[in-house]
């Protein structure tokens, strides 16, 4: 018994050591990167990295595949853009407004979707997202095909102008790291342990007395809210909210990022987002072939390396990442 406890503690400290090292490496990268890489590209990566991390919280740790996460990302970006442009809110309030929208949508969609399990869950989330896509086409405030353009970046807390790319970059980094640490905290909290128990064996978790539906719903809403933060931030950074963000292809992209980086790993989604966004940037000239390449990556990931990049590295080095 004692031995088991001490082994558990040892493995936990090993875990936190490798993960702390990786975290510090990531922070160092984010500090140095803008002097080497175009900041706008980095900000795009960070927005999608946060989106993918939020998605991974649900798929990687609860085992729920939501195929409609564009719903929260896209609608949050619409509301944030509208709040900043029409209501004249400061950027941080605009992003919060977007996140709050995503929370509400997450509660509604989540409580519907968790009524069914497995493959139906994916189909329901996809269908609900498609429904809200049609609403986005018809609602007047989204401006249909044009989207909400020329969204002002504004002044943070009404003081600091975000027109300067480096100021904007700093804000995005802070938002990303804060949400990243929040997700990390959730994963290793007692609440997170219950989520993993549900992923491994839901009937057993129920038999132990956990109201799994409530846990699933809370995880779903957290994931939606964080996806909303990502969407709102993206709207402020790129000064644009458009139909692309709510379309099902966006839901597919976030699945791809998470899968490439590594399902159920802490750092995988961020790495996956970097890889996929970089690929899209460099291959933009190839037009529709990007779609074919993304499809091929999907097939390759599912058939050949289901652990993803970070998962394979972690497995190779026998550490947790």
């Amino acid at each position: 018994m004692n031995q088991a406890v001490s082994m558990h503690v040892a493995s936990q400290s090993a875990r936190s050591r490798s993960e702390t090292a990786a975290f510090l490496l990531m922070v160092a990268f984010l500090v140095v990167a803008p002097s080497v890489i175009y900041p706008l590209f980095l900000m795009k990566v960070l927005c999608f990295a946060l989106f993918a991390c939020a998605f991974n919280l649900l798929l990687g740790y609860v085992g729920l595949l939501s195929f409609g996460h564009a719903l929260y990302f896209g609608w949050a970006s619409y509301v944030s853009a509208h709040a900043a442009k029409v209501w004249g809110l400061t950027p941080e309030l605009a992003i919060l407004a977007g996140a709050a929208t995503a929370t509400v949508l997450g509660v509604i969609a989540g409580s519907l979707a968790i009524r069914r399990q497995g493959i139906y869950f994916a189909m329901i989330t996809l269908a609900l997202a498609q429904m809200m896509y049609f609403f986005a086409i018809q609602a007047p405030f989204t401006h249909g095909e044009d989207g909400i353009q020329a969204v002002p970046r504004g002044r943070l807390f009404g003081l600091i102008s975000l027109a300067d790319p480096m100021a904007m970059y700093a804000v995005v980094v802070v938002i990303f790291l804060a949400c990243f640490m929040l997700i990390y905290r959730i994963i290793y909290s007692p609440f997170g342990e219950v989520l993993k128990a549900i992923r491994e064996n839901e009937p057993r978790a129920i038999s132990l007395g956990y109201k799994t539906d409530r846990y699933k719903l809370v995880a779903f809403v957290l994931s939606a809210t964080l996806a909303g933060v990502a969407g709102g931030t993206k709207a402020i950074v790129f000064q644009l909210a458009s139909l692309t963000d709510v379309y099902w292809a966006m839901s597919g992209e976030v699945v791809l990022m998470t899968l490439v980086g590594g399902l159920g790993t802490v750092f995988g989604p961020a790495v996956g987002a970097f890889v996929i966004i970089a690929m899209q940037n460099y291959l933009a000239a190839f037009g529709q072939w990007v779609m074919v390449i993304q499809g091929s990556i999907f097939v390759a990931c599912v058939m050949l390396f289901r652990r993803g990049i970070v998962g394979e590295i972690a497995n190779l080095l026998r550490i947790k990442l």
Partner: peptide, 8 residues
């Protein structure tokens, strides 16, 4: 996910 990739 595999069939989604094939569709793409």
């Amino acid at each position: 996910l595999l069939t989604f990739g094939l569709a793409l």
